[in-house]
Simulated scan of single mutants.
Amino acid sequence: MTMTIPTPLLLGPNQPLDRPYRGGAGIARFRGTPQPSPFTPEDFVGSTTEVFAGGGVGLTVLPDGRTLREAVAADPELFLGEEHVRRFGPRTMLLVKLLDTAERLFVHYHPDDAFAARQLSSPLGKTEAWAVIDAADDAYAALGFRRAVTPEEVRTWWTGQDADEMLAAMNRLPLAAGDTLLVPAGLAHAVGPGVTLVELQQPTDLSLLIERRSLSEAEALLGLDLDTALGGLTLDATPEERIASLRQRRGAETLFPADADPFFSAERIQVTGSRELEPTFSVLVVLDGIGTLEAARGSLSLSRGATVLTSHGDGPITLDGDLDLIRCRPPR
């Protein structure tokens, strides 16, 4: 028997404990909630994805006690729509996170679909994109190499764990609130301290760490040996014009360039008065303002820091008030 769909649903924090880097204060400020610990830099929002170590950590739990993963599997067309299920099967194809850095993230990269399938038994890799919502004055990211590097050079960095040399070989990008950036699989990257962002990504937790700090080699490389792990890293230079294209908004409300379309989509929606949105599986992140969300099943009050899960089965939803929000969606 099909259970009643639980959306639209306001989602509270879902922050895995004891992650390997410090952060989370920016999420607490944004949401107006306590910071669970100094090591809770990620908030998995509307998540059917668990952390790589498993155990269900990271999965969104619905008010009826089911995980969102279980609910979607039980009735995918209700959550995702017939067209989505026809193209992608019963997978949401989307993970949204809030991420906040109290220290620089590890230099790392994410595998693409082919590498993930071949080496990690995963049908999906991890292309991701960021929408910065708060940033320190000197905030930055490092993305891709400024020049071509060799496998031997990366092995030397790995052996000596020379993060300064890694970063010196990378493009450094200043970050400020309102900036967006697409991060294709394969590109080495890191985020400096003092950044709070909304992250869209393929729904996996696959990160290969060139800089491992206190982690073991197996933890840093997901159980792979170094030579195998380097097979998914983009060693070629990522030139300035490519970086510029990854930072480029497409125009109007669309946040990311066309290269993001096979993976996910996001819109910056500003409402003054009333606006109707078409039915879709989505995560809404309210950046500012006060308002309401109206759907056939009821209404929700919205304000800064609110995150909302919607389903295709909700039908059209109406936003009323003065609102500034990001709507995160699967590939369209």
Rank of each mutant, 00 (worst) to 15 (best):
T2H: 09
R19N: 10
R19G: 01
R19Y: 13
R19H: 06
Y21R: 01
Y21N: 11
R22Y: 04
G23N: 13
G23H: 12
G23C: 11
A25V: 09
R29L: 14
G32C: 04
P34K: 07
Q35G: 02
F39I: 04
E42G: 10
G46T: 08
G46W: 08
T48Q: 01
F52H: 14
G54W: 01
G56I: 04
T60S: 15
D64K: 05
G65E: 08
T67C: 05
A71Y: 04
F79H: 09
E82R: 15
E83Q: 11
H84L: 06
R87F: 07
R91S: 13
K97D: 08
L99W: 09
A102R: 06
H108I: 03
P111M: 12
D112K: 11
R118T: 14
Q119I: 00
L120K: 10
S122F: 07
G125H: 00
W130R: 06
V132S: 00
V132H: 03
D137P: 12
A139R: 11
A141S: 14
L143V: 15
F145E: 06
T150W: 09
P151E: 13
Q161R: 12
D162F: 00
D162C: 06
A163V: 15
D164E: 15
E165A: 15
M170G: 11
R172S: 07
A176H: 14
T180W: 02
V183Y: 09
A188S: 09
P193T: 08
P193S: 10
G194R: 08
V195M: 09
T196H: 02
E199N: 10
L200F: 10
L200M: 13
L209M: 14
E211C: 07
E211S: 06
S214G: 12
S214F: 10
L215R: 02
L215I: 01
A218I: 00
L221H: 03
A229H: 08
G232D: 11
G232F: 10
D236V: 04
I243N: 07
L246G: 03
R247K: 13
R247P: 03
Q248D: 10
R250K: 13
R250H: 10
A252Y: 04
F256G: 01
F256V: 05
F263E: 06
A266E: 08
V271C: 11
V271A: 11
E278S: 15
V283Q: 09
L284N: 05
V285M: 00
I290L: 13
G291C: 06
G298K: 03
L300Y: 01
S301L: 07
A306V: 04
G313P: 05
D314P: 05
G315Q: 04
P316I: 05
P316E: 13
I317H: 04
I317R: 06
L325F: 06
R329I: 03
